[in-house]
Amino acid sequence: MQILFYLFAAVSILSALFVVAAKNPVNSVIALIVCFLSIAGHYILLNAQFLAVVHVIVYTGAIMVLFLFVIMLLNLNKSTEPQKSMATRIAAVIAGGLFLLTLLGAIKDGIGIADPDVYDGSVGLVKSVGTSLFTEYLLPFEVSSVLFLSAMIGAVMLGKKDTSPQPLSSGEGQNAADRA
């Protein structure tokens, strides 16, 4: 078990680094898929079967397929990548550094590592996840579902064709009616 943990940990970190380091966006996406799968492996080690399999279905099976789909469709590669200006790069480094500082500040007093001896192996099973979602966290759960619904409707509205009548076409309709 411990060997599996170290294996998954190493694969997660190395593939995450490769996501950032890879030149080709398709290789980046594939590294991210490997990263997600190894994180699913961590869930399995914690007996969180439901979380693991939903993680695979949602992140690996749906979101990354969309990523790959868009990258393939746009045929992104090194030559089409826009060159960022120096100001953008400096701003990106500062923003990233600030984020790192925030993270370090958050974990400087030590992150609460759960005691493995008292770990409840049933916490990630369907029943316990469902019970806590629909009792303890009912309101956040419902609110986030409304958020997702509004995001979906918003995307559909943005993607809809503009069907309002054009002035030229309505004039033609008038002429056609006159001729008839």
Binding site: V53, V54, T60, G61, V65
Partner: peptide, 21 residues
Amino acid sequence: PEIGILYVFAMVSIGVYGIML
């Protein structure tokens, strides 16, 4: 496994990578 049918589903959704890649 407790999540048997979801496991089948996960494998199907990974399978599309074979075709895409």
